[in-house]
Amino acid sequence: MNGWILAATVALGGGGAAALWGVTTGPPARRVIAQNLTTSAFCPALLLLAQGYGRPAYVDLALLLALLGPVGTLVFARLLSDDLSAQDASAWGLTWTAAVLGAAAVVALCVAVGPGRAMVKLLVIGVLLIGGNVIASRALAGGFRGVRGG
């Protein structure tokens, strides 16, 4: 049980509980924001677990989540646009907080891993995660307003 696993436990437990509460209660706007939060909470947790267990192969899981998590949020943003048109789901404070925490985790891991191919992979995952998080939030906050039935 080292520091990395402890940090991963905090990320999984705290982020997971907050996302679960958001996804099960409230108006559709809050639910899709919580679904978006899932990706940005769990992807750094997977990176921390990869470092904590000493298994660099687990980083592939974080890469896939950074790529496909925002795609899942875009699915809901597009196909629930009727429900969301009444009330835009914008939570920019939460988005930027999650982005900053994710960036902090990636930087800490890059320092621990040292220069090389593994660091480049971590930086790519960090860029995909933060970019995807911001774009998914933009999509939820009215990105599909003009789409009718498509």
Binding site: L67, L68, P70, V71, L74, I135, A139, V147
Partner: peptide, 21 residues
Amino acid sequence: PEPAEVARPVRRYALLVLPVA
């Protein structure tokens, strides 16, 4: 259906991430 007008950041993100994925 009629062609849809999606916000430009979302469109650009989709076109950038598609080859990466």
